[in-house]
Each structure stands twice: as C-alpha cells, then as structure tokens.
Write a protein that binds this DNA or RNA. Structure first.
Lengths: 215, 215
DNA sequence: AGCTAATACGGAGACAGTCTCCACTTGTGG
DNA sequence: CCACAAGTGGAGACTGTCTCCGTATTAGCT
C-alpha cells in the first residue's frame, strides 16, 4: 500500500512545483486577457518568474495552458448554475443561467478568447471534457423539459451550441443585448410546437434526409 | 472596367502582378483549408512560385490574405441568396438560405477557419464589410418580417449572429444536423409572440434594463 | 519597334517566438 | 541530516514572420 490505497502511482506533488504552476496560470490569465491567447509563452514564463522549461513541463502545449486557465474559471459559473436550479422554477432557472453565462463573458469573468483558441474551437473545451458547465446546462434543460415547459423534441445539445455560438459575436457593437435577445428567441422556439414554416415544399439541395418528424 | 474616365491616377495594374496575386489567393485557399489559417505564409508564397516579398506586398498582413480569400468565396453564397428570394415565399426563402449557408460550410465551399481567424472574429468579416452575405441575409429577414411571417420585434442582427455562432460548433459530432435544428428553433422563436417564460419575476442580477416590451 | 521610368519581383537576413535538452538545485522520505 | 527523485532554468536549435534592396519586367510614350 504505498500511497493511501488510491492512485498508488505518483509519489507526491512537490510543493514548489505546485506553487509555480499556480503562478503560471495566474500570469497566463492576465496575459491572455491583455494580448489574447497569442501572448508569448516565454514571456509568461518570465513574468511568472520561472524558466521556459518549467512552463513547458507543466503545460506541454499552448492549448494545455489555455484549457487549464479556462477550466479554472468555469467552475464558478457551474456553481452558480447549481444554485439557480434550487431556487427557481425550471424554465426560469434555465433562462436565468443562460443570461448569467452572458454576464460572465461580458464581465471578463470568463476569458472569451479561450473559446476560440483551442483546436476544435469551443466545442472541445465545453463538450470534450463534459465539464462542469456543460453538465450544469444539460441538467437545467432536462429539468425544463421534464416540467413540460420545453418541448420534448428539443435537444439539449442544440441549445448549448446555439448559446455558445452567441459568444462568437462579441466583437459586434451590441453583442450583449443581442445575445440576451437570442436567448429569448431560443427559448421561445423551444416552447412552441415547431410549425414547419408555411410548408417547406421546395426540395433543398444539400439536405436529403431531414426527418419531417415534427408534429 | 472602372478605368476609362474614372480614377485617372494609377498607371495600370501590371499584368504579372495580377497573375501573381491570383495564384497566391488560390494557393492560400488550399493551404487554409488544409492547415487552418495558421499555415505558413512563406510556404504559401513558395508554392505559389513567388517570393515572400511579393506575397507581403500584396497582402501586408495575414488577415488581409484571409479576408481576401474569404470574400472571394462569399460571393457565391450571396448570389444564391438573391436567387432564392426571387423564387420562394419570404419565410421559406429565409429558411432555405440559412440551411444553404450550413451546406456551404459543411461542404467546405466556405472556408470555416477563416471565420475565427480575423481579429474581432467572424463579426468583422461579416458585418464590418457589410459584405454581400450580410446584406443578403438582412434582406431576406426584412422581407419575412414585412410579409408578416416573422414578428416585427425581431432584430435581423440577432438572427445573423445566432446563425454565425452556430458555425463555431463544427468540431462537435453532429454539428450539421444540430445546426439545422437550431435554424428551426430560431425561426420558431421569431414567429411566436415571445411569452416571457412563466413569468420572469425573479430579478436577474446582471440584466437591469430588459425591455418588457412584448405582448 | 525601341526607350525608359515606374512598377513589381524574390530571396537573403534580421528578428521573434516555440520548444528541447540537460547540468544544476531543492524539497522530501527515511 | 542525507541521498536522490523531482523540479528548475536558460542556452540554443528551429521555425515562421516580415523588411530591404538590387534586379528584372512592363506600360506608355515616341
């Protein structure tokens, strides 16, 4: 029984290493906010008072660093989501959380550029890790569906993607207000039985197999 | 044929220059599709059979090149939009075009990474130039609103942003199908008078000034 | 056609950032 | 308190960006 039963592999996480790691992440966060995710890694290392080698041992690639910074931030938001769920009716909680998400992005509590920087885009960050945010979000949506406030056919993933997508327009002037309206648009869409517009007779080209399954 | 009469200043756009420029753009398009917009510029120059200097004279920055490639592509799609508008009822045309947009992205007829690469993101590419795509889109939406198929309150920009956002999830498994569903979600949302969910009594924190203007 | 000045070319090289390697230092368990 | 694994840092190889300028090409004039 080397270590205490579980994870008997690693010997111990040395103290200074831990400290360095944290400083790097902290400095990186600032740097990413200031110069975007293109910020010089060597520079980050320097400012964190460590050598380049140290930085690269902790975070082999730039993406690893970005991802770490990002996940650190994300936990706050996820926690908020959990809280909302306990204190509001389902649909309202969902909406409130989506708007809160926007607030986080707007207030730089969530580093936005990170969403673009990882290969595979925001997708991997959010979904790949099945991270706290995504989990919280799915939960809220499922809840709203179960309560009957949203249509059964609604795919939680769709809502998630649409919301995430919203954050890619932050360069536009009124993005925040727009994002909020889009949230309402999505929720409204997810409530009303989707009437196929007029009647979509005209055969689209590229899309052969659209299930007409909607009542 | 702008020349004759107008713009008497410039001497003439030398023939080889024009040729080179075109080759660079063509090669760049391939490169961007293969390696993303991070592709080496010197390498592009080499493959296009020109020197680095030549490339940089034509396109002082990477973004300039990306933008040029992008705009070249975009015209096709915009043209399609114009066509649809003439042959379908407004709302249907809008939906068809949004789906067509997705097809373009899916089929690599529109270079996707380009949307992420320009500082300011897709926003500047699409909106900044008030390019053909954006114009076509706004037109389709306005048409649908005028015909009464969409609610008056709907902001065309919102729809545009939401659609664009959709393309930032292409790394996810079922993105294309999801994107199509999101289109329907948006359209449905834009048709039904937005009932404030339940009743949004609970004061949200970050959003003070949401106009309750909806009936 | 022939001339010539404006225009464009291309690649060498200065510079900047990434990432590896390894001799050296430091914290920790015994 | 000591030995040694864990951790460090920075020199340097490498890769890509971008500029500068001597040389080549061409449009417009005669």
């Amino acid at each position: 029984m080397s270590r205490s039963a579980i994870t008997p592999d690693v010997r111990k996480p040395r103290a200074d290493a831990q400290r360095n790691r944290e400083r790097i992440v902290a400095v990186a966060r600032e740097a990413f906010m200031q110069h975007g995710t293109e910020a010089s890694l060597d520079d980050i290392a320097r400012r964190a008072g460590v050598g380049a080698g140290t930085l690269y041992r902790h975070f082999p690639t730039r993406e690893a660093l970005i991802e770490c910074v990002y996940h650190t931030e994300v936990e706050k938001l996820a926690a908020a989501g959990t809280h909302l769920q306990g204190t509001m009716p389902p649909l309202e909680a969902l909406r409130a959380w989506m708007l809160l998400f926007i607030d986080y992005v707007a207030g730089k509590l969530l580093i936005l550029p990170a969403l673009d920087a990882v290969p595979g885009g925001s997708a991997r960050l959010i979904e790949g890790s099945r991270g706290p945010i995504y989990g919280a979000f799915l939960h809220l949506i499922r809840h709203a569906i179960e309560s009957g406030d949203l249509l059964q056919e609604v795919d939680p993933n769709d809502m998630a993607r649409a919301l995430i997508g919203t954050f890619h327009t932050t360069a536009m002037p009124g993005w925040e207000a727009s994002a909020r309206r889009i949230v309402d648009l999505l929720i409204a869409g997810a409530r009303s039985p989707v009437q196929a517009p007029q009647q979509v007779s005209a055969g689209k080209k590229g899309a052969p197999s659209r299930k007409s399954a909607r009542r």
